[in-house]
């Protein structure tokens, strides 16, 4: 079983690396977005899967990353790295200041608090137009560049995003496997027992909240460079809901689930768009179908297929 699992992972990596050059350009573009959403959704997934927190405010950090990159690269003409770092610093600081007080809440109260955070931030993005460009936004964000190699096609950017996704997944994997991960799950499943084992739940949850914010910020900066603009229209409540859908769709506790969920959110609407005006209805129906028919998420269903075929192969 162990060997076959490594095989699947190796095979998936091979496909992710080798296939895109043969795909049409707009499809690679969708994969880039799937990658960016994976990074942001991973943060939400860690909170949901490891701490049981439904975060409806990821858009705040995604937007901070995007605006930091936009403002610094366009108005200050700073190098791209500065945008990434400043976005992450602001996000971490904000996550600490907001997270510490609100993470004492639980359940739907906490979900509402994160939602409220998203609504407040959205209103401020409109209001602080000296910083965000208000409703017009900021355009002309330069393409990312690695030495003199400009990432100006979807395919080139795809490989960067793929690398970032791989690193983030690896780090998340190690986190879950570590003592911290163990403490997190203990806390999620039985808070009292965890406290008796000297785990400080609020501090631990705040740390994961900050980590989630960092991931959101990185995703936002990547998005800003890829799209070349940052506009408040990209940072609405609907996007926050999408970021929450990603881990839920894929299966909250699994890391691969986040990737699968992000692919669903990025690719399925595009595939359905050939049905014209019906496509949004069909997207809703597709969501319903996944929930009703696949209780363990898309990855759970995939694992089931895998298990069955393995059983089938054994006489």
């Amino acid at each position: 079983m162990k060997a076959s699992r490594s095989l699947v992972i190796l095979l998936s990596i091979a496909v992710c690396v080798a296939l895109p050059p043969f795909l049409p350009r707009h499809f690679v573009d969708l994969l880039v977005f799937a990658g960016i959403y994976t990074v942001a959704g991973l943060g939400v997934g860690l909170l949901l899967g490891q701490c049981g927190i439904a975060n409806l405010g990821q858009i705040v950090f995604y937007a901070i990353g995007a605006y930091a990159t936009a403002y610094l690269t366009v108005y200050v003409q700073a190098p791209a790295m500065v945008g990434f770092v400043v976005g992450m610093l602001i996000s971490a600081a904000l996550a600490l200041t907001i997270g510490w007080p609100i993470l004492r809440l639980t359940g739907y109260f906490l979900a509402l608090a994160t939602l409220a955070m998203g609504i407040v931030a959205n209103a401020l993005f409109f209001e602080w137009d000296w910083l965000t460009g208000g409703t017009l936004g900021i355009g002309g964000i330069p393409k990312l560049q690695i030495f003199s190699f400009v990432l100006d096609t979807p395919l080139r950017f795809y490989y960067l995003v793929l690398g970032v996704v791989a690193i983030c997944l690896l780090l998340a994997h190690n986190l879950i496997r570590s003592r911290t991960g163990l403490a997190l799950r203990a806390m999620r499943d039985s808070q009292d027992a965890a406290i008796s084992l000297a785990v400080n739940p609020r501090a631990l949850r705040t740390r994961i909240f900050i980590l989630s914010a960092l991931l959101g910020s990185v995703a936002g900066s990547l998005f800003a460079h890829y799209g070349g603009f940052a506009n408040v229209q990209s940072f609405g409540i609907e996007k926050s809901i999408n970021f929450l859908l990603i881990p839920v769709l894929g299966g909250a506790t699994s890391l691969i689930g986040v990737v699968v969920g992000a692919l669903f959110i990025a690719v399925v609407p595009e595939l359905l768009s050939q049905f014209g005006g019906l496509h949004q209805i069909l997207f809703g129906v597709a969501l319903i179908g996944v929930v009703v028919l696949m209780p363990a998420g898309l990855t759970g269903a995939l694992a089931e297929v895998w298990r069955r075929s393995a059983e089938g192969a054994r006489p």
Binding site: H26, D29, G227, F229, S234
Partner: peptide, 20 residues
């Protein structure tokens, strides 16, 4: 093409129209 009032969608639609 419909961008669904979403600029992310507009990018891939434009890529598709221009290149495909």
């Amino acid at each position: 093409e419909d961008d669904g009032s979403n600029p992310d969608g507009a990018i891939s639609k434009a890529n598709s129209l221009i290149h495909r």
